[in-house]
Design a protein around this nucleic acid. Structure first.
Length: 304
DNA sequence: CGAGTTTGACCCGCGC
DNA sequence: GCGCGGGTCAAACTCG
């Protein structure tokens, strides 16, 4: 039994986006918002926010990865702790590891652990301060996959489940049973995770939408903004034809085959450390030269 | 019996 | 420096 082990490594990272993507970003979000909302005002607002965000974002340089080695005392549940924890570190000093970007979804659902096509193993649960709802920690059951996710209910709205993903799957989904989705009325709302503040940031009020619940981003926009490390998001089952078309334009959706694949059209990566003042246009496609699937599964892992 | 969950302990980063 | 809170570990437990 392993009684001495190294602890996890803290790290922070920031991704930067190519400036040449600005036009594509603007075009995509403008078209999406305009088609979906039919409001020129919204388009203008979003474009302005986009410009502001792109400007501010490009002013930031890639943050230096910060890392520290952590040594943990021997596991001692029902056992006395080891006296010399300083000898337990198994990682050489100075070794750095990049923190995986984190992305979060807010989903209206009565089920905590949403089906996303992957198998997860729960490895912890913690009470969250100022919240009656505990936070659960999951790890991908694939031994070679380091993706983790946290699941918690929103304190403000208990009907909303906040799922935060960290890392990138290195394998295919196990299944994608749409029939097992938590609710036909689930709605997704993409959030940003601020490492340093340790909270989810919904930078500004989401754009107006056709949805009844104004707290939820438009599904097509969310779909268009799907972060690279997330499992395949699905368009809400209740969305109308226009919504489905928009969603399908963002990623290929195969309702009959109960699966979804990402076309090489639009994708994005959202930095996990965007300031809380980042406008909603931060939720924009950042790359147009690679497919969403490219971000999720390495080419060697894909089945074409 | 293996896989997954529960749960208390532990460690570390960060704010004060 | 200290305490709090987040994140993780792993033994014990549950379930199929």
């Amino acid at each position: 039994m392993r009684c001495a082990r190294s602890r996890g490594i803290r790290f922070d990272s920031m991704e930067t986006h190519g400036s040449g993507r600005c036009a594509a970003i603007l075009a995509c979000v403008t078209a999406t918002i305009h088609c979906y909302c039919g409001s020129c005002v919204v388009v203008v607002v979003v474009v302005v926010f986009t410009l502001l965000w792109v400007t501010s974002f490009h002013s930031k340089s890639r943050r230096v990865v910060v890392q520290s080695n952590r040594a943990r005392a021997p596991c001692c549940r029902s056992k006395p702790p080891a006296p010399t924890p300083t000898t337990t570190s198994s990682k050489p000093a100075g070794q750095k590891r990049a923190r995986q970007p984190r992305f979060a979804f807010m989903t209206k659902s009565d089920i905590d652990h949403l089906e996303d096509g992957y198998r997860w193993r729960k490895y912890g649960q913690k009470a969250v301060k100022n919240s009656p709802f505990p936070r659960s920690y999951y790890r991908c059951t694939n031994s070679k996959c380091t993706v983790k996710k946290r699941v918690e209910r929103s304190f403000d709205d208990p009907s909303v489940v906040i799922t935060t993903y960290e890392g990138q799957h290195c394998h295919h989904t196990v299944t994608f049973p749409r029939a097992h989705l938590p609710s036909a009325h689930s709605q997704h709302h993409l959030l940003l995770y601020d490492h340093r503040r340790r909270h989810l940031a919904s930078p500004t009020p989401p754009p107006a939408s056709l949805n009844d619940d104004s707290n939820i981003y438009d599904p097509p926009l969310v779909a268009a903004c799907r972060p690279s490390s997330l499992p395949l998001p699905l368009p809400p089952l209740h969305c109308n034809q226009q919504e489905l078309l928009l969603a399908a334009a963002t990623y290929q959706y195969h309702p009959l085959s109960s699966s979804a694949t990402m076309p090489p059209t639009t994708t994005q990566t959202v930095p996990d450390d965007v300031s809380s003042t980042t406008p909603p246009s931060a939720l924009l496609p950042a790359t147009v030269d690679s497919g969403l699937l490219d971000d999720m599964v390495p080419p060697a892992m894909r089945q074409r």
